[in-house]
C-alpha cells in the first residue's frame, strides 16, 4: 500500500480531521471546525473535498497508509506477525480504527476493503505456487479479512476482548489459515 499523493494543504486537512475525530469521538465534525484546526479557509477545504463523503474516504485512506501502516512482510508466513502488530495499532487509536473499518464496508463507492491483497498474492505466488485457483483465492481472502481493522472491531465488540487477546486471536487465526500450506513451499 502506498501513501496517496497529497498537497501540503490536503495533508493538513486530513490530519486536522483525524485529530478532531479522536477528540470528538465521532466523524461528525463541521468543515468550519476542520478548517480552523488546519489553519486554512473553509472554502479551501470545500475546494479539495467537495462532499463529506470525499473527505471521510480520503481521511480513512490517509489513516490506513500512515498511522496504521504495516511493516512490509518478506514472507506470507510472516503475515501473522504483521496482523498482531496491526491489531495493537488499532487498539491505540479506537476512534480512527472505527472510521477505517466503516468506510471499507460501503461497497464500490467506499474505500478499498482489501488494500493489502496484491502484496499477499505476490508473496503467496512466490512461495507456494502449486495451489489451485480456489485454494489460492481462499487463502488470500481469509488473510485479507484477518489483516484488517474489521477483525479488531468484531473481536472487541462481540467478544469483549482487550488488546492482547485480539492480537493473539487474530494472529492465531492467520496461523490456522497458513497451516494448510505450511509444507507446500516451492523448493
Amino acid at each position: 500500500m502506498t501513501v496517496p499523493e497529497l498537497s501540503g494543504t490536503q495533508a493538513a486537512v486530513l490530519a486536522a480531521y483525524a485529530e478532531l475525530i479522536e477528540e470528538v469521538g465521532s466523524d461528525d465534525v463541521s468543515y468550519r471546525v476542520i478548517a480552523r484546526r488546519a489553519g486554512i479557509a473553509e472554502r479551501t477545504v470545500f475546494r479539495n473535498y467537495p462532499t463529506r463523503v470525499d473527505l471521510l474516504l480520503a481521511t480513512a485512506e490517509w489513516i490506513e497508509a500512515t498511522l496504521f501502516a504495516r511493516e512490509e512482510s518478506q514472507s506470507i508466513f510472516d503475515i501473522p506477525l504483521a496482523i498482531r502488530e496491526a491489531m495493537e495499532r488499532y487498539d491505540a487509536r479506537p476512534e480512527l480504527a472505527h472510521v477505517v473499518a466503516e468506510t471499507a464496508m460501503r461497497g464500490v463507492s467506499g474505500a478499498a476493503p482489501s488494500p493489502g491483497r496484491a502484496q499477499l498474492e505476490q508473496l503467496l505466488d512466490a512461495e507456494v505456487p502449486s495451489l489451485d485457483a480456489a485454494q489460492r483465492r481462499a487463502v488470500i481472502a481469509a488473510l485479507s479479512h484477518l489483516d484488517s481493522v474489521g477483525t479488531w472491531v468484531t473481536f472487541r465488540r462481540e467478544f469483549g476482548m482487550d488488546r492482547r487477546d485480539i492480537a493473539d486471536a487474530a494472529a492465531w487465526a492467520a496461523e490456522a489459515v497458513l497451516d494448510t500450506i505450511r509444507d507446500r513451499v516451492a523448493p
Binding site: G107, A141, A142, H145, T154
Partner: peptide, 26 residues
C-alpha cells in the same frame, strides 16, 4: 474456545461477504 468462536464469527459476518464482494468480485 474464544479464538475459535471469534474466528468463526468473523468469517460468517456481513463484513466477510462485503470484503469478498467488493475487494475480490466474488
Amino acid at each position: 474456545r474464544r479464538r475459535v468462536a471469534a474466528s468463526l464469527r468473523y468469517f460468517s459476518s456481513a463484513m466477510f461477504w462485503a470484503r469478498l464482494r467488493t475487494g475480490f468480485d466474488l
